[in-house]
């Protein structure tokens, strides 16, 4: 039997990959931007969780680094239809950060340095589903990709994984964020192709 070519454009490692509907595979790491890239010195960086009754839990960079870390490898799905598989991160699970937070709020509004916001249910941040990550592929997270630290919620479209994360506000009512108030879906499940309002 002769050699069967996959063709010049063949990407053997793409074969058999199951992607959410409407997505295509990329091997680079596209950067989409809605504004200037914030530059936050680590000695002024702070992450906060603000509860619905006005209490704030804060972590400095050193305090974040002192927490137990995890190394999730996850697939990313952007609402602009690219997917990137097997991305390797290092960061702190939101379960760890929420361990001492007393709250019965059902909704979260994530806010970032630079003014970006995005909303999601609190339950989507817990039970091993979300992290504050500060390394990508073994290197410190570049500012273009949200460094020094970003939220990682890989089971939702990537706009929910807020770059330059600054804090999470816990709310009794849902408060749509930056893209959710401009036509994008309030929840954003890529497997249900929830791209726009009404999807």
């Amino acid at each position: 039997m002769g050699f069967v070519s996959r063709g010049f454009r063949g990407r053997p490692r793409d074969e058999g990959v199951k992607l959410p509907p409407g997505q295509y595979l990329v091997h680079d790491f596209p950067v989409l931007s809605a504004g200037p890239t914030p530059r936050i010195p680590l000695d002024r960086w702070e992450f906060a969780i603000d509860t619905e009754d006005g209490r704030t839990h804060r972590w400095s960079w050193q305090e974040l680094m002192a927490l137990p870390s995890e190394t999730p490898t996850v697939d990313l799905h952007c609402v602009t239809k690219w997917s990137k598989l097997g991305t390797a991160w290092k960061g702190v699970s939101l379960d760890t950060l929420f361990a001492d937070v007393e709250s019965s709020a059902e909704y979260a509004l994530v806010y970032s340095y630079g003014g970006y916001t995005t909303n999601l249910p609190v339950e989507d941040l817990l039970d091993g589903k979300a992290w504050i990550v500060y390394q990508f592929d073994g290197e410190e997270l570049a500012a273009a990709h949200g460094g020094p630290a970003r939220l990682l919620v890989p089971h939702l479209y990537l706009w929910k994984s807020a770059k330059w994360v600054q804090g999470i506000r816990l709310l009794n009512e849902d408060w749509p964020g930056f893209w959710e108030t401009a036509g994008y879906h309030n929840y954003g499940d890529p497997w249900r192709e929830q791209r726009y309002q009404g999807d």
Binding site: S33, P36, Y196
Partner: peptide, 26 residues
């Protein structure tokens, strides 16, 4: 103007705040 994806975000040249946003769905 930043974008075009996920949407066009037009910012003030003086203060960088968002002045206009435009998202084109199908």
């Amino acid at each position: 103007v930043y974008g075009p994806a996920p949407g066009l975000v037009a910012r003030c040249p003086a203060c960088d705040e968002v002045v206009l946003r435009l998202v084109r769905g199908p």
